[in-house]
Amino acid sequence: MSTPSNPGNPGNPGTTGSVVVAYSADRYGETAVAHAAEQARKEGARLVVVNATLGSSLVDNRFAHDADIAALHDRLTAEGLEVVVRHDVVNDVADAVVAAADEEQASLIVVGIRHRSPVGKLLLGSVAQKIILTAHCPVLAVKPSS
């Protein structure tokens, strides 16, 4: 299954480095993308949107629909950014984000974080936490204004 929906870009002389954003199809993801877009614009860097799923359940609400991802890509491109989208089924979402950052030589990873209940912390691993702990570049954690 495929990846960059914006081919023919690597090594484009116009841009240096990139900003990777871990996108989930909810308000946390929207917030993260907004911050990442801002950073990318400031640095003149490429924006890499990673939206991944384990594919372990029939429906994953954080995995964006194909049409929505295309719309997001178009919107960000229209804002004048150079955008790469990675929309994949992977074995581990956090690993996929960190791997994308390594491959794209990212200067920054942006993740959205959420409040979690004690039971949730016990049962479920946190993607954001794993990204923060394993990334090889600075990680910016953002949350939606409540």
Binding site: T53, L58, D66, V89
Partner: peptide, 8 residues
């Protein structure tokens, strides 16, 4: 097993 989630 279907790998890619369906769009609900």
């Amino acid at each position: 097993l279907r790998r890619k989630p369906l769009e609900i």
